[in-house]
């Protein structure tokens, strides 16, 4: 299988201030310079701490995404009742026409 590089690598490299800024922009979170200065080193500590796991894992330990050795767990293609729309929209900050009302996202045209 010729796929793109391992997805795990991006997570284990230390996180830079620029990267935090870019992620904040993608997530539509406004961060001030002071907040960036404050958060970037903290996030870097978290990422580095998690990365410490790889130093423990030897070559003979395959990467794992699940705690249990289970696979092929399926459900049959059968419907179950959905929530009532009032229930669905109860957690929405705003709704209109029985839909979630969200701020428009610039640059996206789905």
């Amino acid at each position: 299988m010729t796929g793109p590089g391992s997805p795990a690598q991006a997570v284990t490299s230390p996180i830079t201030r620029d990267e935090v800024l870019r992620l904040a922009q993608l997530a539509r979170i406004d961060l001030t310079d002071a907040e960036l200065d404050h958060l970037a080193p903290q996030l870097a500590v978290i990422v580095e701490s998690v990365a410490a796991v790889s130093s423990v894992a030897a070559d003979d330990v395959p990467p794992s995404s699940h705690a249990l050795p289970l696979q092929n767990v399926f459900r049959e293609d059968e419907t179950r009742p959905s929530l009532a729309p009032e229930e669905v929209l109860r957690g929405a900050p705003e709704s209109e026409q029985q839909r979630f009302s969200v701020p428009r996202i610039l640059g996206e045209d789905a």
């Binding site: 669905v88 026409q97 029985q98 839909r99 979630f100 009302s101 969200v102 701020p103 428009r104 996202i105």
Partner: peptide, 13 residues
């Protein structure tokens, strides 16, 4: 009906 000029979006899941 497109995003340009829209004030907000309504989402149906």
């Amino acid at each position: 009906g497109r995003i340009h000029g829209a004030s907000h979006s309504l989402v149906d899941y």
